[in-house]
Amino acid sequence: MSETTQTIPRESIDVLDQLMKPEVQQSLTVLVENLPKLAELVTILTKTYDVVQNVVTDQVLIEDIKGGMEEFVKPIQEGAKGIASAAIEANDRVQTAQTASIGLFGMLRMLKDPQVQKALQLSQAFLDVLAERRSQKEQH
């Protein structure tokens, strides 16, 4: 027996010792019972990996996605730039204007402006929505 022990590498003995433990044997039994499911899962993961790998390495597809995103983002970006430039211009006008304040008659004239009317309607609708949501929360 001592000759056999000497010819078997130490790593093999360690593995055999591990295999003799009941918890390792139980784990191996579970693995063997679930091999069909594990094989199916590995197959699905392999196919998914292949698809992802093809997508990631397809320069034409990447350029198409990039172009589509740019077409989607560009109008939003231009709109934001337009709003920002209008806000800057309005601020500049207020800063350079030497008028002291807007009086009652000035406010009445402003109320006739269609843009002011839209802003007031939007503000009123926004406040109505907030009030409705608040009352719905209170009812629950």
Rank of each mutant, 00 (worst) to 15 (best):
V56I: 09
L61C: 00
Y49H: 14
D58L: 02
Q53P: 01
V55F: 08
P75L: 06
P75R: 00
M69N: 10
E70I: 11
E70D: 13
V51I: 12
P75A: 03
Q77M: 09
L45E: 06
K47L: 07
Q59T: 15
G67E: 15
K47E: 15
I62P: 02
I44P: 00
K47S: 02
E70Y: 07
Y49I: 05
I44G: 03
G68D: 09
D50K: 13
V60Q: 09
K81M: 09
K74G: 04
I44E: 12
G68H: 04
I44D: 10
G67L: 08
N54P: 00
D58R: 03
T57Q: 14
I65A: 10
Q77T: 15
V55K: 14
I65H: 07
V73G: 02
I62Q: 14
D58I: 01
Q77N: 11
I76L: 15
I44V: 15
D64S: 10
A80G: 04
Q53S: 15
E63D: 15
E78H: 02
I62C: 10
E78T: 12
V60L: 04
G79S: 14
V42S: 03
T43D: 09
M69C: 02
Q53G: 07
E63Y: 04
D50T: 06
L61D: 02
L45M: 10
Q77A: 13
T48Y: 09
G67I: 03
Y49T: 06
D58N: 15
T43L: 05
E63Q: 12
V56E: 13
E63L: 08
V55A: 11
Y49A: 07
E71R: 12
V52L: 11
V60M: 09
Q77S: 12
V51L: 13
I62V: 15
A80V: 13
Y49L: 07
K66G: 12
I76N: 11
V55H: 06
G82W: 05
N54W: 00
K66I: 08
I76Y: 05
M69Y: 04
K74F: 02
N54T: 15
T46E: 07
M69A: 11
I44Y: 07
Q53V: 08
V56G: 15
F72M: 11
T48G: 01
T43W: 00
K81A: 13
M69E: 03
K74V: 01
T46H: 01
T43K: 08
D50G: 08
I44S: 14
V55D: 10
Q77Y: 07
K66V: 12
T48S: 12
I76R: 11
A80R: 06
V55Q: 09
T43A: 10
V60Y: 04
F72W: 06
I44Q: 14
Y49P: 01
L61E: 07
V73L: 14
G82V: 00
G68C: 06
G67R: 09
E70M: 05
Q77I: 02
D58T: 05
M69G: 05
D58P: 04
K74N: 11
T43I: 01
I65G: 10
E63C: 06
L45Y: 01
I76H: 11
Y49Q: 03
K66A: 13
P75C: 08
V52W: 01
V52R: 07
V56P: 00
D50L: 07
T57K: 14
